[in-house]
């Protein structure tokens, strides 16, 4: 087994898409709670001590999200207290709490995803759908750095003959527009040279191979298959209605049955997979290092 960030980007993407979609659509409190706890765990495992700032940020979000619903929605039958003659209900508070847990877990999943995927790995997946659009995307990432540098150079050049000043806001805007105009011309003209160099190397002559230094290994396949199977199981149980919850007028949970249990269990298994792999790999390395 390898660490998540070393796995093939496709299987990593499939996992995160599955788990995020489930976290967004299944609102059974057991699932949202598990999603929040396990996504937080994964992020902490991935980022270590650097994750604290994110935790604080998400905690603030969590509180805001929880409180929004009781403020704007007054449905529900159990009135907790009255504010300015409007009732604040237990049901709407519970709804807010559940929604906040779901939303914050989505944040965590998404942040973890960003932590293991850089733009190159992302484009590798995108390239499987549309090699050509992925090529355009990777070109534009490269051009962004070039354009930034050229913008800086042009600004200096223009400043040195008095065409760019930042004395007042009008001059500043006029100067920046002049620089931007020059940079656009530069980028388009030079782009033609890039295009010729691509054509000279056979771009557009046949269908492109999507070459990548990453190889799809057995482990990637197993991980992806497990993610897909567990998600399918969870979706099936949800479709049977066993993971249903209604908040209004009274909070009612679907009766606990086998399908509900399987659904929750499969989600937990799915969500715990990456953290387990990360920790397992770390322990294995530590052991083999101590043997050396």
């Amino acid at each position: 087994m390898r660490r998540i960030r070393d796995m093939h980007p496709l299987s990593v993407t499939v996992f995160f898409v599955c788990v995020t979609m489930l976290a967004m659509s299944v609102s059974h409190p057991a699932v949202t709670a598990a999603s929040l706890v396990l996504s937080m765990l994964l992020f902490t495992v991935l980022k270590g001590a650097k994750s604290i700032r994110t935790h604080i940020l998400i905690l603030i979000f969590f509180i805001i999200f929880t409180l929004i619903n009781p403020v704007i929605s007054h449905k529900g039958s159990t009135v907790l207290f009255m504010v300015n003659d409007t009732p604040v209900t237990l049901e709407s508070l519970l709804y807010g709490l559940n929604a906040a847990a779901g939303l914050c877990s989505v944040f965590y999943w998404v942040f973890s995803f960003s932590a293991v995927m850089d733009s190159e790995r992302m484009l590798c997946v995108f390239g499987l759908i549309s090699p050509r659009a992925a090529l355009v995307a990777s070109c534009s990432i490269r051009y962004l750095t070039l354009i930034k540098a050229q913008y800086r150079r042009t600004k200096l050049s223009m400043r040195a003959i008095g065409l760019y000043t930042d004395g007042n806001i009008i001059d500043l805007i006029r100067g920046n527009m002049r620089v931007f105009s020059s940079v656009i011309g530069w980028a388009l003209e030079n782009g033609i040279a890039t295009a010729d160099s691509m054509a000279a190397r056979g771009c557009g002559s046949t269908k492109r191979t999507a070459f990548s230094v990453k190889k799809f290994r057995l482990g990637d396949g197993i991980f992806m298959a497990a993610a897909l199977m567990l998600s399918a199981l969870c979706v099936a149980c949800s479709a049977l209605g066993s993971l249903k919850i209604t908040f209004y007028p009274k909070t009612v949970l679907a009766p606990a049955d086998a399908a509900g249990f399987i659904g929750i269990a499969s989600f937990i298994l799915l969500a715990v997979m990456p953290s387990a792999i990360e920790t397992g790999v770390k322990l294995k390395w530590r052991r083999s290092m101590s043997e050396v």
């Binding site: 070039l146 190397r201 492109r208 191979t209």
Partner: peptide
């Protein structure tokens, strides 16, 4: 500078062979 297409060295080398499949 203008003849390079991609942002990684290995990918720049692979670009031509990729293009001809």
């Amino acid at each position: 500078e203008q003849q390079m297409v991609t942002d990684k060295v290995w990918h720049e080398l692979a670009f031509g062979p990729e293009s001809i499949g």
